[in-house]
Computed example of a mutant assay.
Amino acid sequence: MTPTSAIPDAALRLLVEQGFDATSVDQLAAAAGMSRSTFFRRFGSKEDMVFADMEAIMDTVRRVLERGRRDPPGAVVDAALAVFDHHTARPDASLLRHRLLQEVLALRDRELVSTHRYEDAFRRGLDAAFGPRAADGDGGARIASVAFAAAVVAVHNAYLRSWLRSPADSIRAELAAELRALAHLFAPRFGGPAGRPGARGVEGDGAADGLAPDPGADGPRGRRPDVVVAVLDPSAGTEAVLAAVRGALEHR
């Protein structure tokens, strides 16, 4: 789990109850039990305070991706679950921040930047694990990394929104199952001669031979895998994302 963030619940609650623009730094510092100078040293600004845990989460994501080099898609799933665990570890703080994001446009914009950072970290983790094939122009591997990273973020965010509407312990297990199913769908795109034969595979998918597919599964030896891209509205739910990916794979 990501280390507990220093964001004080009392300060977040004050922003929600009193209004973001109407709340001064002095008031936030008092609510957090610190001086004005300490507040600025620790957070920098009101907006930075709301996202003070971002760097800690990103550090956790990078560590998880680095540890999972033998199974890159599985490592992305684990990293996404670590992000979910961080947000759900402190329900009050997460719910308060969610309310702020609904009310303050500038904070919603900042949250969008955070989402892109996760997506970029997942893509970079995949590219690094698959090496020259992704970095030096293999379009299939490169596009697969982009598509998988975006799909994981979309599914994660859909389940996190569901949890924010109605927190339930079962949501984490449902998210894990959906992400592993998504990784299973993408596994052939990351296989082949330049893949990672012998990787442990996607947990729970029943695969015994890791991410390396049947050599004949994609046609003649040496054929570059097809590229599958599904384009959806950013607000699409989990089922819509998975249905689009399944449909694209079935009709490629």
Rank of each mutant, 00 (worst) to 15 (best):
K46V: 11
K46D: 01
R165K: 09
D26N: 13
R62Y: 03
A217G: 15
F51A: 06
H116E: 04
S45F: 01
A217S: 15
D218F: 12
V153L: 08
L249N: 06
A22C: 02
L164F: 04
A147L: 00
A32H: 02
G33R: 09
R133A: 15
V61E: 02
F39W: 03
D138L: 01
R223P: 09
R200G: 15
G198Q: 03
A80Y: 05
E47A: 13
V245E: 04
R165P: 08
G74I: 01
G140C: 10
A150C: 05
V64Y: 01
A6Q: 07
D127P: 06
F39P: 03
S114P: 00
S94G: 10
L100K: 04
D233S: 13
P225N: 04
S145H: 00
G247K: 00
G139L: 14
P73F: 04
L242D: 05
R165Q: 12
Q18L: 03
F51S: 10
E178M: 04
T238P: 04
G19E: 05
A32N: 02
D233N: 13
G222V: 12
A11Y: 00
D71E: 15
F51Q: 06
R223V: 15
R13F: 00
G191T: 08
P3R: 07
A56N: 09
G125C: 09
L249K: 00
G222C: 11
A154V: 00
V104S: 08
D26H: 11
R142Q: 09
A141G: 11
L249Y: 13
R165C: 11
R13L: 11
T238W: 00
A173V: 13
D127R: 10
R142N: 09
A121H: 07
V155S: 02
P73M: 03
P72Y: 01
A29M: 07
Y159K: 05
L185M: 14
R124E: 12
L14N: 03
H184A: 13
F122M: 07
T60I: 04
A121E: 12
R97T: 15
A106P: 06
A128I: 05
E239F: 03
V241N: 05
A177T: 12
D169G: 09
S45L: 00
T4H: 07
A150L: 00
S166Q: 14
L105W: 06
R117K: 10
H87F: 13
G204S: 09
V153T: 14
L65P: 03
L107F: 07
R180S: 14
V152D: 03
R196S: 11
A208L: 14
V76N: 04
R70V: 11
S94C: 12
P188C: 10
V155R: 02
S94E: 11
R142E: 04
F51W: 07
